[in-house]
Design a protein around this nucleic acid. Structure first.
Length: 517
RNA sequence: GGGCGCGUAGCGCAACGGUAGAGCAGUGGCCUUUUAAGCCAUUGGUUGCAGGUUCGAAUCCUGUCGCGCCCA
């Protein structure tokens, strides 16, 4: 269905028509910007500092964000990515007709260009005395008006776009009127840059592995399924990179990492988006304790780079990322929190009975590992506000981790928590192909055929393991959640540019449905 | 998946059973140092959608769609 223009939009369409009648192209191909608004301001400050008599001449460009026509003069503000700048339009300089064109045919939200000399107004604000101006791109739809008022030095925003649904569905409008939202994504980029720098400096090689995989694995999650028409082959969008990155260790790379998108066909919540960004690295000849030390160093480095300090405030909590982080052994942590010693309960039935005895309702039909997972999620995770490593996990929820030499029921694995949120997961990688095969088979028996976390066996991965993989420490971390911590956001949707929402009735249906397997 | 809440003009909101409103934005006018500029006038609504109760529904009820929060 074609767009129905609103009355406000129709007025602007009419203005486009009038601009063209006047020979003023509302969508010219090129701009002539000489200075960003920030550069223009510093140009004047530099000239003033040098005692320069001549005012700097600039051409600036940006979105019109405020207009104050006052008879024979008009004040306006434009905004570009570097900030805002005031423009001064005067009938004496431009002529009455040109001023009227600006007042009548230019609207808030339009991209414009203005040329002139810089000066300071009576109040001292750096301003362009406009000698020429032109439309760069006419906005037909009015942006939600966001007026800022400075009260006691604080910016008070009036009537800003705040509805979360509109903000996520029309992120472009959100970004256009809410500069602090743009800052979130600058921080996010900075975090990723710092992670790359840290790993690159330590000899890690950045690689790219398949997103489309014939067999999914490496995590406990349901995949998205797609289909290659010509190969007549079912493919899965990856749920993790793990099995491919470890194949690279077989291939003699010793330190590899990948930053990319994982896809999990699961519920959407304030901390889950169906596609999310993950960092995984694998480090040959290292174990999970070395990985632990590297990780706390890495996050302290990121904090230094991004925040310039090692503490951050998240949802009212002062969080200190300075190493070393608190370390909690899982068995001991569970025992202290619940009074249950999981080592005394080697099977699900026994553990479930112990939980009931403590007044905890065990998840029906869950295997032992999932019951332990339940205890961790309910009793430990929420208490891990300061950075905490929880280590030594039960074997049966960790099919890719290596058992402890003295305790075959427990694997060398840790998870990192901050702000009560799981942030990362790591282990000494299982590199014994026979044990790995046994684990896969074990998973197949333990999990019901319809369990979403039951995985098909990746025979090619086992083949790779049989060629030999060195002892290795591996690591995975959610970049989205890390960004939430660094930007003090409670919802993952605030740190993803275009989060997934349920389809609205007004969406255009695709020309043809994608082919289904 | 369950519970609670929200959906009113482009935006942020009011009206909570009795004529749908004010502000900002818009439109017309006045205004040569403003900055939520000001002043005068003015346009704009199938109150998410579909039913029901009622003399009368934005308001109460049911369903539905979307979003948010809490829980699983």
């Amino acid at each position: 269905m074609p767009h129905q223009y609103t009355p406000l939009e129709k007025i602007r369409l009419e203005k486009i028509h009038r601009l063209r009648e006047l020979g003023l192209e509302p969508y010219p191909n090129r701009a002539q910007r000489t200075h960003t608004t920030a550069e223009a301001k510093s140009a004047l400050e530099t000239a003033e500092a040098a005692g320069d008599a001549a005012a700097p001449q600039v051409t600036v460009a940006g979105r019109l964000r405020a207009m104050r026509p006052m008879g024979k003069i008009t004040f306006a503000h434009i905004e570009d990515e570097s900030g805002r700048l005031q423009l001064f339009f005067q009938a004496n300089t431009l002529g009455k007709e040109r001023l009227k064109q600006f007042n009548k045919l230019f609207d808030l939200g339009d991209f414009i260009q203005a040329s002139g000399f810089l000066f300071r107004t009576r109040t001292g604000e750096i301003t362009v005395h406009v000698q020429d101006f032109r439309m760069l791109a006419k906005a037909i739809t009015p942006l939600p008006p966001a007026k800022d008022e400075i009260v006691d030095g604080k910016v008070v925003r009036h009537a800003v776009l705040a509805d979360p649904e509109t903000r996520y569905r029309q992120r472009y409008a959100d970004l256009a009127v809410n500069p602090e939202v743009r800052d979130i994504f600058r921080t996010r980029a900075h975090i990723v840059r710092a992670l790359r720098q840290f790993l690159d400096e330590r000899g890690f090689l950045e690689v790219e592995t398949p997103v489309l995989q014939p067999i999914y694995g490496g995590a406990a999650a349901r995949p998205f399924v797609t289909y290659h028409n010509q190969l007549k082959q079912k493919l899965y969008l990856r749920i993790s990179f793990e099995l491919y990155l470890k194949r690279l260790l077989v291939g003699m790379f010793e330190k590899v990492y990948e930053i990319g998108r994982d896809f999990r066909n699961e519920g959407i919540s304030f901390k889950h988006n169906p596609e999310f960004t993950q960092l995984e690295f694998y480090w040959a000849y290292a174990d999970y304790l070395q990985v632990m030390a590297l990780v706390e160093e890495m996050l302290a480095f990121v904090a230094d780079q991004v925040l310039g300090r090692r503490t951050l405030t998240w949802q009212g909590h002062e969080i200190d990322l300075t190493p070393p982080w608190r370390r909690v052994e899982l068995r001991q942590g569970v025992r202290e929190a619940t009074g249950i010693d999981i080592a005394q309960h080697p099977d699900a039935a026994s553990l479930a009975a112990a939980m009931k005895a403590q007044g905890i309702e065990p998840k029906a039909g869950a295997p032992r590992g999932k019951l332990i997972d339940q205890l961790v999620s309910d009793f430990l995770e929420p208490t891990f506000i300061q950075p905490t490593f929880l280590y030594d996990y039960p074997r049966d929820i960790s099919p890719l981790a290596k058992a402890k030499p003295d305790d075959p029921q427990t694997v060398e694995r840790f998870e990192g928590f901050i702000g009560g949120m799981e942030l990362c997961n790591a282990f000494t990688e299982l590199n014994d192909p026979l044990d790995q095969e046994a684990r896969f088979l074990e998973m197949g028996r333990t999990y019901a055929a319809d369990d979403e976390e039951r995985h098909p066996i990746d025979e090619d991965y086992l083949r790779a393991m049989r060629y030999g993989m060195p002892p290795t420490g591996g690591f995975g971390m959610g970049i989205d959640r890390l960004t939430m911590l660094f930007t003090d956001k409670r919802s993952i949707r605030e740190v993803i540019l275009f989060p997934h929402l349920r389809e609205r009735g007004d969406a255009e249906p695709p020309a043809s449905e994608p082919q289904q397997p």
